[in-house]
């Protein structure tokens, strides 16, 4: 299945390991990635707050780029990118005044938005287009036995449900299904659908870190020895700022946090270093040792 690959800003810079892992894993799952160097940032929710019309038009352009190439799917690897592209789609479908303005400005740059392309996160693509989580099972070369993984969804892949049209916005299961198919054990905890605190890291860092800390602690207390997330912004909160998060909740969390495609890649037998785990701030070796692969000291 050929898709327009929308990596998003973070995966192209500070979170490059996500891009590495995605490019490594995608072909093995039968996903052909087409790159578009003209894609811009999705606005990350922040442009929506300063100028929603601009945010909508920027994403109309992104979607139009994929449409022009004749592709039906834009594959995202970030819950926030997914959320913003879907929000733009909703705005363009429901708000005729805004649609007219977006159409006009796209025409000025020689583009057209028709609404034929569907943004889908890699997780959603697996569940909806590649036959479901169970289809991963035969591909697994290194079952993630011994890993108890707390799935951390990231808000925007789920909510609002009538914008995202994915699954139960407060009680999803697709990620856990994948974790199970990869041979690991999913951990049930309430924090999996909560907020990582990233959106207010710049406004009130301590609150943001406290939120991250609470969710990690929740996973830990319910038995998780690793976490995984489909969102690189969540990864920043959960991994990059885990030390600060731990301080806020008074716990030395020490929780390895994988990107979604990294977890898949590990099960497919890939080299953890090739998947970029060395770039994490929290040492992943405790998890990797359980898989019988080499620990990578942080």
């Amino acid at each position: 299945m050929k898709v327009a690959y929308y990596p998003g800003c973070v995966a192209q810079e500070s979170g490059k390991e996500l891009d590495l892992a995605t490019r490594a894993v995608a072909p093995r799952l039968g996903i052909e990635l087409q790159d578009f160097p003209s894609f811009s940032c999705c606005g990350s929710g922040f442009i929506d707050e300063s100028n929603y019309a601009l945010n909508t038009a920027l994403n109309a352009r992104n979607l139009a780029i994929a449409e022009k190439a004749g592709l039906a799917t834009v594959m995202t690897v970030c819950s926030t990118c997914q959320g913003m592209l879907k929000l733009a789609k909703r705005n363009l479908a429901e708000n005729k005044v805004l649609r007219a303005r977006a159409d006009k400005v796209l025409a000025q740059i020689g583009m057209e938005y028709r609404g034929t392309v569907e943004p889908k996160h890699m997780l959603q693509l697996i569940v909806e287009d590649l036959g479901g989580a169970e289809k991963l099972r035969p591909l697994v070369k290194r079952p993630l036995k011994g890993l108890k993984v707390g799935a951390f969804y990231g808000c925007h892949i789920l909510r609002p449900h009538d914008t995202m049209n994915f699954e139960d916005p407060e009680d999803p299961h697709s990620f856990e299904d994948v974790i199970r198919a990869l041979g690991a054990e999913p951990v049930d905890y309430r924090g999996r659908v909560m907020c990582c605190g990233f959106p207010i890291q710049f406004v009130r860092p301590k609150t943001g870190q406290k939120l991250a800390g609470k969710q990690i602690l929740d996973a830990k207390r319910n038995g998780a020895n690793a976490m995984a997330t489909p969102c690189p912004l969540c990864h920043i909160s959960l991994d990059t700022y885990q030390k600060e998060a731990g301080r806020e909740v008074g716990d030395d969390l020490q929780m390895p946090v994988f990107h979604f495609p990294q977890l898949v890649g590990l099960a497919l037998g890939m080299d953890p270093i090739a998947l970029g785990v060395k770039r994490h701030l929290v040492d992943t070796s405790s998890a990797l040792e359980k898989l019988g692969t080499v620990g990578v000291p942080a």
Binding site: C155, R159, P160, P169, E170, V193, P199, I200, V203, T207
Partner: peptide
Amino acid sequence: WLCLRCNL
């Protein structure tokens, strides 16, 4: 600005 936009 403390709203997280988590949409819960």
